[in-house]
Design a protein around this nucleic acid. Structure first.
Lengths: 337, 337
DNA sequence: ATCTAGCACTTGGAGATGGAGAGTGCTAAG
DNA sequence: CTTAGCACTCTCCATCTCCAAGTGCTAGAT
């Protein structure tokens, strides 16, 4: 048996199935690809591929369809990351340049990626976990109301209004803020709670109660933003690609909204040598996503993830290229700002 | 012709169609409702309703289905706002109580409404347009970097980091902030730009350039948050209700993501005597939403909208009740915080 | 050893056919 | 104004047949 050709057949099957969206048979294969052998030979190869569990036949007399395992081999051994066209690079450049806010950047990015791939795109907010405190601010709004603001060097700004148990005049608040700032500035956000706790002893006894309240608020702020969020775009593509298929998109939409499953999944995905991570079908280990694949990669310093999600029958080469390119531009922009 | 009964027939048709999800015929109608007359009589009434364009027959020998106009009459004249069950009220209460942040409140609210109605729920961020400035803060992060924070009495907090053209030490920044605060505090956010512009003359000449930069940043902040956002939840319900119907959900998902169409629509919807606004099918004046209805109402002081979106074949009574109840709780919570 | 040609076999899908059932509109009578 | 009855029209469904696609296998060719 000719091993290289067998892999070539697998590649052809995957590519044709992605392209024509229907099971591909031996005859169509020899017609569309220059394999140099007859359909009978291809049939033998296909039988072998089926024995290995790389392809499967929906029923006796239809062509073959790649299995999750088949896609895996394709992605690992056969898929080249197709470079983007100049027009696409241009589009990335111009679309991302006008952004100011972090929110805005992510929003634009995810839409861009979605349009580029015609699939659902997801981007995870930069995690505060590894970020450091850049500034802490406490602003008195009313005698007992204080606005807390936490700014991380990742560009994230979190704020919250807390109500405290006793009146705070401007001077007291200002002193407390100075202390907080000194104790946390430049330190990792993750340690913010501990740093503030260690600060308490150095404060005037009459300030400790209210300081503890504020510290709790700040700690909550740091914690609440560490449980990250995901921004999505292009859910409409789901409905389209699904229209000709059996899978219901409802569970997928749920997963996108729930975010929990997706967050776990993204954080577990590790990039391969090409810098992209791919989870195919059941590899997602989530029932609701058993018919979808995810192509993702990290960006920025915090290794937050960005990627696309689509049916297992997706164009992996193009997806990987788009994800990687967009992630790079995004990293560049975030580093520059 | 018996007019009251004719309307009763319309109500029965709408209710049955919502319940059983299939065209309803004269015979089924007399069996399921105590109309006191025979099916032949109902048939006459139905013929009249069809002449008036309130119901239509998909084909000769299927039952009738309400038209958009039919739903309109139903909603205007026949639908009572069904009160919520104690269990539902309980759920609203307990789910919304644990929230702290404005973001968090809206997020929880929209999920709640979605679960309550089994439909897509949308909530518009409170518009800053009518809100007043509660606080303005400017924090120096680096010599030339300033974090601007704008807090409105609607609870909205907007922030942005701006880079200015000259160094600003703490004292200068503090003075400027005092001026800004004095000039805008308590005034409508919409006038913030004008108020700041009027302030310039009273400043030291050497401060004017940098003050203008900061003022521009604040004005941009006020403007950027006035172009409101919408939070959605429950898009998965779309896919479900659609599964047995023709309409494609793809355009609807697009409309939800685009937001522009939806924002216009929500802002144009005016509540009726019961305090709820309903747009049915083509009344939405958007092609992509021609088969969906929206039930919405305002909340809070700013008259931001909250509502649900679903197929025209929806339970209007229940939707109106849920939307109204949730909007009231939401208003209460926002007023209290 | 490997490839190829040929062929019998399987099977889902596309049409065609033919009730069955649901629902209507109309007419004539109460 | 209501009702019973009835002829008529459709869609839906199950059944059937037929066809094309595709396979696996075997025997021969290279």
């Amino acid at each position: 048996m000719n091993e290289p050709r067998k892999l070539e057949v697998l590649r052809a099957i995957v590519e044709d199935y992605v392209h024509y969206r229907e099971p591909v048979g031996s005859k169509a294969l020899v017609e569309r690809h220059r394999l140099g052998v007859s359909s009978a030979t291809i049939r033998n190869d296909m039988a072998a591929l089926e024995d290995e569990g790389l392809i499967a036949a929906p029923h006796t007399s239809a062509g073959r369809v790649p299995t999750d395992k088949g896609y895996r081999v394709f992605v690992d051994q056969l898929a080249a990351v197709r470079p983007l066209s100049p027009a696409e690079k241009q589009a990335i450049q111009s679309l991302l340049d006008g952004a100011d806010d972090l929110d805005d950047v992510l929003e634009r990015t995810v839409r861009l990626l979605s349009h580029l791939t015609n699939q659902v795109a997801v981007v995870q907010y930069p995690q505060l976990g590894r970020a450091r405190v850049r500034h802490v601010e406490a602003v008195g709004l009313a005698p007992r109301q204080v606005l807390l603001v936490l700014i991380a060097d990742s560009g994230t700004v979190e704020q919250r209004v807390v109500t405290v148990g006793e009146d705070l005049d401007h001077d007291r608040l200002s002193l407390l803020r100075q202390s907080f700032l000194a104790a946390t500035s430049g330190k990792p956000v993750a340690q913010l709670g501990a740093n503030l706790a260690g600060l308490m002893d150095s404060l005037l006894p009459e300030d400790r109660a209210v300081a503890a309240e504020l510290a709790a608020g700040l700690a909550a702020l740091a914690a609440s933003s560490r449980e990250d969020r995901i921004v999505t775009a292009g859910t409409a593509y789901l409905a389209r690609s699904n229209s000709d298929f059996l899978m219901s998109i409802s569970p997928v939409l749920e997963a996108l909204e729930e975010q929990v499953v997706l967050l776990r999944l993204l954080s577990e995905m590790a990039a391969d040598a090409r810098g992209v991570a791919v989870a195919i079908g059941h590899e997602t280990a989530a029932d609701s996503l058993s018919e979808t694949s995810i192509v993702a990669t990290g960006y920025g310093r915090d290794d937050a993830k960005i990627g696309v999600l689509g049916p297992t029958r997706m164009d992996y080469s193009a997806s990987m290229a788009a994800v990687r390119a967009v992630a790079r531009y995004l990293s560049k922009i975030l580093a520059g700002s």
